[in-house]
Design a protein around this nucleic acid. Structure first.
Lengths: 115, 115
DNA sequence: CGGTTTGTTCAACGATCATTGAACAATTGA
DNA sequence: TCAATTGTTCAATGATCGTTGAACAAACCG
């Protein structure tokens, strides 16, 4: 039923701080999450799709960090959370930044991708 | 006299890690240092030129972090240290990244700059 | 030589971090 | 209703962080 209601706290685009974004990305696990969100064909993913990166609890922690820093948007949908990259907001705030990160991250061998 | 001898350990350009760079920049003081290095007309600065950002000891700590992450090059010269941004290395490794950071940082009101 | 400048090292401190496991909450589906 | 799914919260732990002050080191200047 009713799909509105952004329940979890997200910073407004204008109050996304560069230092917060940078330190949120200064962790391999979170960087990998952003990489997956960026190159995934789907624009939203669920927490469980990142389970190969760590424990359920750990992911909850890391995703909260990414959300608080303004990197991802989390929209509850049933018992799941739809997680998406805040591309437009980040591009507007820090032009070119996200793309440069993603480009470098895309060149990475992902654990679990092909042999 | 004799000016060679890079004494302090620096990562080679190829082994600069994105996550390390990001977490090094995830601190307001260090971000400010990079901003000053980037927009300064001089290509090298001494530690004492950053004293308005913190204590002598604190700066030594932060500059070591930046050096270890591969963001700056530190060249001893007499009793001073000449600190410079590793622009070329960073651009080659993470194209567009540094510029996007600097652009955002340049738009910042620097403490101590005009009234 | 002695003193000054410039910066590093060390030990300490409180704060935050990332990880773990157990317990909980909410929705879905039979 | 009962069980499974999906994810959060909490407390605990060890590690790392950023800051401080005192002591040290090295080059320079007189």
């Amino acid at each position: 039923m009713l799909s509105g209601m952004t329940s979890l706290p997200h910073p407004h685009a204008d109050q996304i701080e560069l230092a917060h974004v940078l330190s949120a990305l200064g962790d391999e696990t979170r960087l990998a999450i952003i990489g997956l969100l960026a190159q995934g064909e789907q624009d939203a993913m669920t927490c469980s799709q990142f389970l190969h990166l760590g424990s359920k609890t750990g992911l909850s922690y890391h995703l909260a960090k990414l959300r608080e820093a303004g990197l991802v948007r989390v929209r509850p949908e049933g018992t799941k959370r739809m997680i998406s990259l805040r591309r437009a907001d980040l591009d507007r705030r820090f032009p070119g930044f996200l793309d440069s990160i993603i480009a470098c991250q895309a060149a990475r061998p992902k654990p679990g991708t092909q042999a």
